[in-house]
Design a protein around this nucleic acid. Structure first.
Lengths: 84, 84
DNA sequence: AGCAGTTCCGGTATTTGTATACCGGTACTA
DNA sequence: TAGTACCGGTATACAAATACCGGAACTGCT
């Protein structure tokens, strides 16, 4: 097996990342944020719900720009999830 | 086409990202940095050479930690490549 | 109550790409 | 000659990004 599947903790990390992005979006529309970040709404929704556990670097950086969040903040939340 | 192939500018951006990471590594060994970041040497070499144009967010963040580079710096270099 | 609009969600399907490993080759160094 | 380090090519399981569908929940209007 060349590439092992994602471990449970990696899935947890992805869900924590998604929750942080969802919280940062606040009352704004998902459609609006996705358009500003230059990604599809479907992709943003999958990231927020944790169905994409290891998204691309430039995708998250674009969302950071659209949401006004620092990538280091996302890392802290993802590495230290308050809620499992 | 459900997912369109990467555009030429996205490949350029990936190569610029790779050059920035390669410059940040300096005289250190590729093996050493890859081990510290928790990724395989093959993957790091592919990222540095630009063969992986859109690497994963957590992969680059781990490299930022191992190299002492801020992700925003990488974005600036990637978005404004001095050398094409 | 009924209808339309918006927003979000889960499931499914598809193409492209990541992350990994192995091999041979090249260049430099002792 | 031997050792280290980088590179390109090939191969492969797994995942990203996109799109479409049906449905749920909430809102506003008639």
């Amino acid at each position: 097996m060349i590439r092992p599947p994602l471990r449970p903790d990696e899935h947890d990390r992805g869900r924590a990342l998604g929750r942080a992005l969802r919280a940062a979006r606040g009352p704004r529309s998902l459609l609006d944020v996705a358009a500003e970040a230059g990604i599809s709404p479907e992709t943003l929704r999958k990231i927020e719900t944790g169905r994409i556990a290891t998204p691309a670097f430039f995708t998250i950086m674009a969302l950071c720009g659209a949401l006004g969040v620092a990538p280091d903040q996302l890392m802290e939340v993802a590495e230290h999830p308050i809620t499992g």
